[in-house]
Amino acid sequence: MTATVEPTSPAPATPSVLSTRGLTKSFGGVHAVRDVSVGFLEGKVNGLIGPNGSGKTTFFNMVTGMIKPDSGEVMQGERSITRWAPHRIARLGIGRSFQLCRVFPRLTVLENLLVAVRPTSLASALLGAHHAPTVARAREILARVGIEHLEHAEARDISYGQQKLLELGGVLMADPRIIMLDEPAGGVNPALIERIATLIRELNAEGRTFIVVEHNMDLVMNLCDHIVVFDRGRPIAAGVPAEIQSDPAVLEAYLGV
């Protein structure tokens, strides 16, 4: 192993709102994530970067319950949420977006948001339509992400950039405390990247914690308060953007120096 930095507990001045202990996952012979123990800081924009195939998305999927780890723990505060079903994790107030953007293609833009609202009971879900205040809140969120004029369009008919905004809107509809974004700037134009970055800053200012996987280094360095770097399924560095930029292990992982 060339990497020697040991970022087991990255600068825990503030408590970790979400953390992992020894999280491990293999697919066949591929060690996608190996023994990862990291923590994410409450109220901050946490960055998660690394070369392609370094295990970021697998890590994301384990934290949100989409795939089960081989071993290790996922902790929300002091509580273990390892192997919880994804919808239960979502209901704890942990929202996520997907790499390559996923929306419900044949639901309208407005419906895409409304499905994210948790009904109070199964009976009310079975019989009731959406309440007017809920619909109003969905419209507010659409306005906030800037696609309110498209509310009746089917999601498959709007542009990719608009789908990205819609996906973010859907995440917001559940009012999460922690928002995990998998490549929010992937495949969108610079103007839209700026818009998404502004949204993230505003939402962060409201007290929401962000965990962002991203390849766009300008965005990461501008946006994030704290960054964890993955390489070959392991964290190799952690720190504030300035530290990461000058870290030799990071440079080696990215540039192969």
Binding site: H87, G95, F98, V103, V115, R118
Partner: peptide, 8 residues
């Protein structure tokens, strides 16, 4: 999967 991730 998306539905599940939204809490359904």
């Amino acid at each position: 999967d998306k539905a599940e991730s939204l809490g359904i």
